[in-house]
């Protein structure tokens, strides 16, 4: 297992190289560059060219990539063109917001989603199952940003309970921070809870009908013991897979959620970076996010093989 983890970590480097190449290629296909953004829409060609040379954007693309990559090898992500700080610092400032938001929504999601899913499976075809699954269906059917707009309408405009946007750092006020993240976290969690409940129920039902569970049941084990001992252990497999997916979904959803609720997170950093053609910021933050996802995926795979002995990594 350790050897496998180590191999995967080594294997992550080509992935990250691929990611940076992909990101680098992608952002340079996007029309317009940072020089033009800085020089402004009514700048002359000479002005744009002057800014371009200041930023080093007039060098050939491969050279730019090599410069960027060799800096990366020294763990230097470079300076933002616009933010007046290093990319590493910008990421370090933004990351806690996205991390807290994701964590907050995961903390809401996992217990609620798992319990709802297990309950629905356990009460298969009974009213609790129907009610829970109907709610879950509605939950996965609502557009997250639409739900967010409606939530702002209800909780901020009508009731005035929670702020409509903005972020209070944890260091300034714990309560304030939680208040500023509650609406976005709930808006994100609704979809995730529904997703997790559905997946949990589906797998639990599958497991409950598998041979060894039926054998256990036939042997006269109490239903609750059957569910607890056999089903639950197996249910962890999809749960782990789903959590991996959920972190992806949460980071994705964060792009929209951070926009609506004006949270200075990594999603905003990327979107603003694209909008300003701030290449070092886009590359750096995409790489950071990618690194995080690679680690999450690796952990998921490791847990997966730990939980399911049939999947061997040797």
């Amino acid at each position: 297992m350790l050897a496998y983890a180590f191999r995967r970590l080594i294997g992550a480097f080509p992935v990250l190289l691929l990611v940076s190449l992909l990101a680098f290629g992608l952002i340079h296909i996007i029309p317009g560059d940072a020089a033009q953004v800085i020089a402004g829409p009514d700048a002359s060609t000479d002005q744009i060219e002057a800014v371009r040379s200041t930023l080093g954007l007039n060098r050939p693309l491969p050279e730019q990539f090599i410069i960027w990559f060799s800096n990366l090898m020294r763990l230097d992500l470079g300076m933002s063109y616009m933010l007046g700080r290093s990319v590493a610092q910008a990421i370090a400032e933004r990351f806690p917001v996205t991390f807290l938001l994701t964590l907050y929504s995961l903390v809401l999601t996992v217990p609620v989603g798992v319990i709802a899913g297990l309950l629905a499976a356990y009460k298969h075809n009974r009213w609790a199952d129907t009610a829970l699954m109907t709610a879950a269906l509605v939950g996965v059917s609502l557009p997250t940003f639409w739900l967010s707009l409606m939530a702002v309408l209800l909780f901020s405009v009508q009731l005035g309970w929670l702020p409509s946007g903005g972020y209070v750092p944890l260091s300034e006020s714990v309560i304030g921070c939680l208040r500023s993240l509650t609406l976005p976290a709930v808006a994100l969690a609704v979809f995730q809870i529904a997703l997790l409940a559905r997946m949990t129920r589906a797998t639990t039902l599958e497991v409950l009908q598998q041979d060894y569970v039926r054998t256990a049941r036939a042997k006269g084990a109490a239903e609750r013991t059957v569910v607890a001992r056999h089903a639950l252990a197996n249910v962890l497999i999809p749960v782990v897979t789903v959590i991996g997916i959920i972190i992806n979904v949460a980071l994705s959803g964060a792009v929209v959620i951070e926009q609506i609720f004006s949270l200075p997170g990594v999603g905003q950093l990327v979107v603003q970076g694209i909008l300003r053609r701030d290449y070092p910021v886009i590359q750096g933050s995409l790489l950071a996010v990618a690194l995080l996802m690679v680690i999450v995926n690796l952990l998921v795979d490791l847990l997966y093989s730990y939980l399911d002995p049939r999947v061997k990594h040797d």
Binding site: S156, P163, S164, Q259, I260
Partner: peptide
């Protein structure tokens, strides 16, 4: 100076005293 991209969120922020 706060940047609030959504117009409706700006309005809600004014109404809530933010």
């Amino acid at each position: 100076f706060a940047v609030v991209a959504e117009a409706s969120a700006r309005v809600a922020g004014l109404q809530s005293g933010q």
